[in-house]
Design a binder for these strands. Structure first.
Length: 259
DNA sequence: ATGACAATCAGAGATTGA
């Protein structure tokens, strides 16, 4: 089963590029972030005619996550638990059943800039809630994954110019420590389980020809429970689509699982 | 230190992103 995560930076602006990639990559499941759409305006037809079931958790203008799946989506839940007053659409999960059931969580972790400030406080608080959900997933002792735009640069080798990010919410020690606390509960970060190569990025800014200079960062991640990690066959980044017309600033990251 | 670039909503320019 091929499961991908892709921050599309707006479904309306990205529909053609997304469909082109879906037709080529043929993921069984695609977790989308930054759909920037309310649920009612998210297109279903182009995905359904390709055999995908669609579940969305959107809001007006910003954020928003979705799941496309060729397998039926079961037990869909929306919103990260732990704060009923949080109205930002950044979390969706569902179960898909292939050879076995997998719980699949899609997330769009807050950016957190500028630092310091309320947005950074929100990021850290959101990560604490994520840790709580992650602990519950591990306690279930079943195949599960949490994939999406983490807005975290885990290590210096995950940035072309780490020195440019030292005061940024994506790379501050406190941000990275919060990410490691989740990882260290017992998750496997799929890409690093397959490759120790530096210079592998999933985001390039639109500005200053960042992609042309390969001035990127790796901030889109797939975390596997031990039971899912046992099924890991491959993990790759579809970096080349960043060079196409009307690209997102992120590219897809995917895992192949024996499931 | 600022702005560069893109998307959204709205119908100009502010806001958000990373």
């Amino acid at each position: 089963m091929k499961i991908a995560t892709f921050n599309i930076n707006g479904i309306k602006a990205r529909i053609n590029a997304l469909l082109e990639w879906l037709d080529e990559a043929q993921p069984d499941v695609a977790l989308l972030q930054e759909i920037k759409s309310v649920d009612e305006n998210f297109p279903h037809e182009p995905f359904e005619e390709r055999g995908y079931n669609v579940a969305t958790h959107g809001q007006k203008s910003f954020n928003g996550v979705a799941i496309l799946s060729k397998l039926p989506l079961e037990d869909v839940t929306r919103g990260l638990p732990g704060d009923d007053s949080d109205e930002q659409a950044r979390w969706i999960e569902a179960t898909v059943v292939g050879k076995q059931a997998i719980r699949i969580c899609g997330l769009y972790l807050p950016n957190g800039n500028p630092v310091p400030g309320p947005k950074y406080d929100y990021k850290l608080a959101w990560m604490e809630r994520l840790k709580t959900r992650a602990e519950a997933l591990l306690a279930a002792e079943e195949p599960a994954l949490m994939a999406g735009d983490y807005n975290i640069i885990p290590q210096a080798e995950d940035a072309k110019r780490p020195e440019a990010w030292t005061k940024d919410a994506l790379f501050l020690p406190e941000s990275r420590a919060a990410y490691r606390r989740i990882l260290n509960l017992g998750f496997t970060e799929a890409f690093r389980a397959r490759s120790q190569a530096a210079g592998q990025y999933s985001f390039w800014d639109y500005q200053a020809n960042a992609y042309g200079r390969d001035d990127g960062i790796r901030i889109d991640h797939i975390l596997l429970t031990p039971q899912a990690a046992d099924l890991l066959i491959d993990c790759r980044i579809d970096a080349e689509i960043r060079g196409r017309d009307k690209p997102s600033d992120h590219v897809p990251v995917w895992v192949e699982l024996d499931a």
